[in-house]
Nucleic acid binder design. Structure first.
Lengths: 170, 170
DNA sequence: TCCATTAAATTAACATGTTAATCAAATGAT
DNA sequence: ATCATTTGATTAACATGTTAATTTAATGGA
């Protein structure tokens, strides 16, 4: 990693420093790294990195796992609520549900009181699959919590909640 | 929105409550909403919602815009550094660079000292494009900052930074 | 009751995320 | 100098993100 080339590149960066030759006019962009979108993206990336090996080992994507978890908490829901709860757009959810149904982890039926709505629930196989992964997933989260500190995580979760409340338009 | 059906659904949720019939064994999954991955995802979504109309109006995706911004701060970089700085995986970056090059916003050349490396920089057109969007983008961020509070945002950014530091494995 | 409108879900089309495989160039040890 | 190894970048293949269009069912007013 520390070959001659990267050392020279480091020198270059240090020497050129902040000479970005940007004119200020009062509405400048912030440094990209120090913005909410980038910081949230990178933080999430750092967290998910720890879960990916587990999910991949069991052949589910992050999104599929989210759908399964939400369904476990919800017993039976329609697709709209499911999409909202899992933060997945409707078109993506349509495809994901097909995949999960093909694996027999979920089953769907029409809402008898509203023919447009699809009601989704876990099958016993789906429940079993979650039971199989949940302990490892929880262990990873516990290790992460130990490393970061529960207090810090809780305060971070509260701040994120506050951010979203502040951004709620309507 | 508040039709009879959704009111009945609300009653159902209230009545069924937390009766999820899950056995506790010490390694339970957290409530999906109250986890770092979900909270970070939702928060980012809430923030990006405000920028999407602007980006769409100018025909760039969120990722393309990130690349342009990083390039503006960096003068000239190789693809690896660019990918890292914009939090975009190498394969995605390859495709994005093609798109941006087709629009003449960037130009690429081989690193003369290392034939594998691609050096990327903005063209004058790319600079002009950024100048065109930057004020509106900064204005949106300023409005967001006013709504959330600069202090809260700064503390959030610091916490996110701390989270990533705590998660740095190596 | 009829029909225009609204709503839930899917499909379409294109961009990106993700991992694996490939290719070309540089590196390092012999 | 040679060759196996490593590295930077691209391509491949499939899943999801994103917006628009479409389909089907429900709703609401004449």
């Amino acid at each position: 990693m520390l070959n001659m080339r990267s050392i020279l590149a480091m020198f270059h960066r240090i020497l050129t420093g902040m000479s970005h030759s940007n004119e200020k006019d009062g509405f400048e962009l912030s440094k990209t790294r120090r913005t909410l979108p980038m910081a949230l993206l990178r933080a999430r990336e750092a967290v998910m990195e720890r879960f990916r090996p587990l999910l991949q080992a069991h052949g589910v994507t992050e999104q599929q796992w989210r759908v399964l978890r939400v369904l476990k908490e919800a017993e039976e829901t329609d697709a709209s609520d499911l999409a909202e709860a899992a933060s997945i757009l409707a078109p993506s959810l349509s495809r994901i549900l097909k995949t999960l149904e093909a694996r027999a982890f979920i089953e769907a039926r029409k809402d008898p009181t509203d023919g447009r709505r699809a009601l989704i629930r876990l099958t016993p196989e789906g429940h079993a699959f979650i039971r199989q992964i949940a302990p490892e997933s929880a262990a990873i989260y516990a290790e992460l919590e130990a490393r970061v500190g529960r207090v810090r995580i809780d305060s971070l979760l509260d701040d994120l909640e506050a951010l979203m409340t502040a951004l709620e338009q309507i």
